[in-house]
Each structure stands twice: as structure tokens, then as C-alpha cells.
């Protein structure tokens, strides 16, 4: 029996070692492809090291006491051993120190993620600035991406320039979802009653898988999208290609997209101005039936914490 306990201890350490050393490209979170994901990856590795240490200490003491005092007629039996002030202070202080060692980088990273990552490439000409903004709307069960600077709309895939910080503004039309591209960085919810922001940036051109990570009903499992990061020149030629060859998104077509369904990726060369209001389901239906579209309560700002720090500015 002792042997099995020992084996178990060792077996528990193996996955940790694998995690620390064998970061295969299949393990998306441990394969960061952008500054945001990398920042989070460093924090994860640091916490893994600290936590492996804690686990190792517990396992060593655990195995020691079982082997030593699990024997029949062991010599060390002492029923009066019921407290030890010194030891108790030690194992109060050690966790406190570990918590501090984890809390400091946690808070530092939290604040660091507020700011856009540093651009590592020249911005494409069609961007007109050093950062890009994309409006993301989750609709049952698809992702709509709107490029206000380029006046383009894509569905279930998004194109970004590599090496340029992208400010994803997150909205929901109906149910709550979460926008997650593990190789580029951690997720953020999309909600009807508060729009939020997420900075992401890809180091180099490539395709990065994204999906909704918050359950939203029947079509949820298929609510995936790809992020295509392109070099500056490829991005520019993609924009002009879309402008030339793709249809415009009409209000009629948009209303169709709002119906609960899974759809294939789509591309549109323009979108109605109306979409920039980011209306949610209740507001849209109110507008259709001619009722009030005012979704806010008097005196309350229901539109979120725009510009007031937070995970995203």
C-alpha cells in the first residue's frame, strides 16, 4: 500500500514536468503567439513553479509520515504531540510569502494588460494609424466583426495586421458569450448590458483559432472563428480585394444574420451606418416595432466603463 501511495506521488509530478518542458504547439495556452498571451504565459509558468514546490513539500511530508508511522508497532508514537508553536508559525508564514510572490506579478500584469501592446511591425497603409479597432458582436451562434476604419464586415473570421495592436470592442446581441483566442491572449465576455475591450496582437502572420468560451445554447459548440494575421502588404491587398469583389451588407441581410443559427464565414465590402449603434436584441426589436429604444435607466450609465481603466482601456 505504501508503494502505491509513493507511485501516486510520482505520477502526480509527471504532468507538471511535462507542462514545464513539453510545450507542444497543440497546447495553445502554452504556445503564445502574441505579447498579451506571452505576458499571461509567463505568469502561468511562474505560478506553476511555485505551486509545484508547494505540492512537492506536501507530498514529501505526506509520504514520510505514512511510511514512518504507518508501520505496525512504530517506535515514534507520541499521543501527546498535539501542537508546536514554532512549526505552526512557519507554515503560516511560508504560504503568506508564496501568496506575495504570486500576488505582485498578478497585479503588475493586470495593470500592464490595460495598455496596448507595443507594435512590432509597420502599420498597413489602409489602417491610417498605429493601432486597429474592430467591433465584435456575438449573435446566437456566430461572430460578427466590423472594421470601422475600413468599413468592412466579416462573419466568423477576422483579419488583422500582424505586429499591430488590435483593440477588439466586444458587444453581444443576445446571450452572453466569451471571446477567446488562446494563442493570442485570454478571453473576455461579450454582454448586452456592457461593452468591453480586449487588446490582442499577433507576432507574425498566421491563423489562430478562436471560439466562444461561455455557453450560450444549442449552437454554442460550433461558435468558432479564425483570426487571420497578415503582413502589412497582404492586409492592404485583402482590404482592397474585399472592397472590389465582395457584396455590401444590407440591413435585410443583417436581420437574417441575427436569427439564431450557425453560418459559414462571410465577407462584406460595407455595412449600414445603423450597425455602429451596437443595438442589442431588445433595442433592435423595439426599433422594429417602433417602441422606445432607450435601454438605460435614468441616472445610470449602462454602457460600461469606457475609458476608465479596467482590463482594457
Amino acid at each position: 500500500m505504501m508503494k502505491t501511495f509513493k507511485m501516486k506521488g510520482l505520477a502526480a509530478l509527471v504532468p507538471l514536468l511535462v507542462l514545464l518542458t513539453g510545450c507542444s504547439d497543440k497546447i495553445a495556452v502554452l504556445n503564445p503567439q502574441g505579447p498579451v498571451a506571452r505576458e499571461q504565459y509567463h505568469l502561468i509558468v511562474w505560478s506553476l513553479i511555485m505551486m509545484s514546490l508547494v505540492l512537492a513539500i506536501v507530498l514529501i511530508i505526506f509520504i514520510y509520515v505514512l511510511v514512518r508511522f504507518g508501520r505496525k508497532n512504530n517506535k515514534g508514537y507520541d499521543p501527546n504531540n498535539t501542537g508546536n508553536r514554532k512549526l505552526e508559525i512557519i507554515w503560516l508564514i511560508v504560504p503568506v510569502v508564496i501568496c506575495i510572490l504570486l500576488a505582485v506579478p498578478t497585479v503588475r500584469t493586470l495593470y500592464a494588460l490595460n495598455d496596448p501592446p507595443k507594435a512590432t511591425a509597420k502599420a498597413p497603409a489602409s489602417l491610417h494609424s498605429n493601432a486597429m479597432t474592430i467591433d465584435v458582436t456575438s449573435v446566437d451562434w456566430k461572430w460578427l466583426f466590423r472594421y470601422p476604419g475600413q468599413n468592412i464586415e466579416t462573419v466568423n473570421y477576422v483579419v488583422i495586421p500582424a505586429g499591430i495592436p488590435v483593440n477588439f470592442r466586444l458587444h453581444a446581441y443576445d446571450a452572453m458569450n466569451a471571446f477567446w483566442v488562446p494563442e493570442l491572449g485570454g478571453q473576455q465576455y461579450t454582454m448586452t448590458d456592457m461593452s468591453m475591450h480586449l487588446w490582442l496582437q499577433a507576432d507574425k502572420p498566421g491563423t489562430y483559432a478562436g471560439r466562444s468560451s461561455n455557453y450560450s445554447g444549442q449552437g454554442f459548440a460550433d461558435m468558432t472563428f479564425n483570426v487571420l494575421a497578415k503582413s502589412a502588404s497582404d492586409f492592404d491587398s485583402w482590404v482592397s480585394d474585399v472592397k472590389k469583389n465582395q457584396p455590401a451588407l444590407t440591413m435585410n441581410k443583417y436581420m437574417q444574420l441575427l436569427k439564431p443559427d450557425n453560418v459559414k464565414p462571410m465577407t462584406f465590402s460595407s455595412y449600414p451606418k445603423e450597425l455602429e449603434k451596437n443595438l442589442n436584441k431588445a433595442q433592435m426589436e423595439g426599433k422594429q416595432t417602433g417602441k422606445s429604444t432607450d435601454n438605460s435607466m435614468p441616472g445610470m450609465n449602462m454602457s460600461g466603463n469606457n475609458g476608465k481603466g479596467g482590463y482594457n482601456p
Binding site: A37, Q40, I44, V54, V58, L59, T106, T109, N214, Y311
Partner: peptide
């Protein structure tokens, strides 16, 4: 203890952005 230490990992908000859900 394994559940506990992974709980501490989840407690670190920026890392949780990657673990959440």
C-alpha cells in the same frame, strides 16, 4: 492539494483569462 494549488493558479486574474470556462 492538487485542486487547491490549481485554485491559486485560477485566482491570478490575468492567467484566469486563459483558464476561464
Amino acid at each position: 492539494t492538487i485542486g487547491g494549488v490549481t485554485g491559486v493558479m485560477l485566482a491570478m486574474a490575468p492567467a484566469d483569462y486563459q483558464y476561464h470556462n
